[in-house]
Amino acid sequence: MTDILILTHADFCSPGHLGVVLDRAQREFTVLRVDQGELDDYDLDRPKAVAIMGGPMSVNDPMPWIGQEIDAIRYWVDRDVPMIGHCLGGQLIARALGASVHRMPYTEIGWQPLAKRAQAADNPWLAHLPQEFAIYQWHSDTFELPEGAEGLMGSPWCPNQGFAWGDKVLGLQGHPEMTEDLVRLWLTDWAHLLDETQASQQGRAQMLEDLPAKVTALNQVAEGFYQRWLSLAFA
């Protein structure tokens, strides 16, 4: 086991570009599938940094492992462990901090424009970002802001796209970890979920247009988050 822990919940929601960043930095990491019981015997005192990836399930689904993961997150919050959550991961962190997570009346999918909230412009999690930028989205649930959290950014379809809690916890609604391969995989395996009649969704062709350039820009967004997360753990 290593000091960096990544929690996953589905084989198609991998660490993606986060794994690339860690490999480049020569940081070893452990990946556990929480939905397959791999957190059961894990030493919660071990990690110095935790990343929580996405998944197709809802925080509100009646699965025993969801409660177990929320309890683990609360333990790491109490230990002041740097954490970053992606989509479902951000929702799990929000729930662990006492916030509600609920279904939206539509599904937000595609390269959506995000904007920093004015009051969060100086937050160090956002220091590498312009006022407006894009993050890949695929979600039907959204989180409310936990008490004491700072809302960081929003999109036209989802006002709560990210929050900071204290100085070491970042919850995100989108998917900064996406790679070209992951985007193409999702648009192949999950194409039946797309509905271009919803204004909140981009069409498949639009999502794939100029994909290398879009992913390169997204990598820069992600790397700023990941570098701060690592610096907090290994200063």
Rank of each mutant, 00 (worst) to 15 (best):
T2N: 15
I6F: 09
H9G: 04
A10C: 01
D11I: 02
G16K: 03
L18H: 00
G19W: 02
V20G: 01
V21H: 03
L22C: 05
L22A: 06
R24A: 04
R24I: 01
A25N: 00
R27G: 00
R27L: 13
E28K: 14
E28G: 15
L32W: 13
L32P: 09
V34D: 09
D35Y: 03
G37N: 13
E38K: 07
L39Q: 11
L39M: 15
L39A: 13
L44N: 05
D45P: 00
K48H: 13
K48R: 15
A51F: 13
I52Q: 09
I52D: 08
G54Y: 05
G54H: 05
G55V: 01
P56T: 06
V59L: 09
V59E: 06
D61K: 04
M63D: 15
M63K: 15
W65S: 12
Q68K: 15
I73E: 07
I73S: 07
R74F: 04
Y75V: 03
W76D: 06
D80W: 00
V81G: 06
M83P: 04
I84Y: 05
H86M: 11
C87Y: 09
Q91K: 12
Q91E: 14
A94S: 13
L97F: 07
A99Y: 10
V101H: 09
H102F: 13
H102D: 11
R103P: 01
P105G: 08
P105K: 08
Y106T: 06
T107I: 14
T107P: 01
E108G: 04
Q112S: 12
L114G: 01
A115P: 00
A115E: 14
A118R: 13
A120M: 08
D122R: 13
N123W: 04
N123I: 05
H128C: 06
E132I: 02
F133N: 07
A134D: 14
A134E: 15
W138M: 11
T142D: 02
P146L: 07
E147T: 15
A149D: 04
A149L: 04
A149N: 04
E150L: 15
E150S: 10
G151N: 12
M153C: 14
W157Q: 11
P159V: 01
N160D: 15
Q161M: 12
G162R: 06
G162N: 08
G166V: 09
D167N: 13
D167I: 00
K168P: 07
G171D: 11
T179S: 15
E180R: 00
V183E: 03
R184T: 03
R184F: 01
R184V: 03
L185N: 03
W190E: 14
A191W: 05
A191E: 15
E196P: 06
T197I: 02
Q198D: 14
Q198I: 00
A199W: 06
A199M: 13
S200I: 05
Q202R: 07
G203F: 10
M207Q: 15
L208K: 06
E209T: 04
E209N: 07
D210N: 14
A213S: 10
K214I: 03
V215S: 02
T216Y: 01
N219S: 12
N219Y: 10
V221I: 14
V221E: 05
A222V: 02
E223V: 05
E223C: 04
Y226D: 02
Q227K: 08
R228C: 03
R228V: 05
R228D: 02
W229C: 03
L232N: 02
L232R: 12
A235I: 00
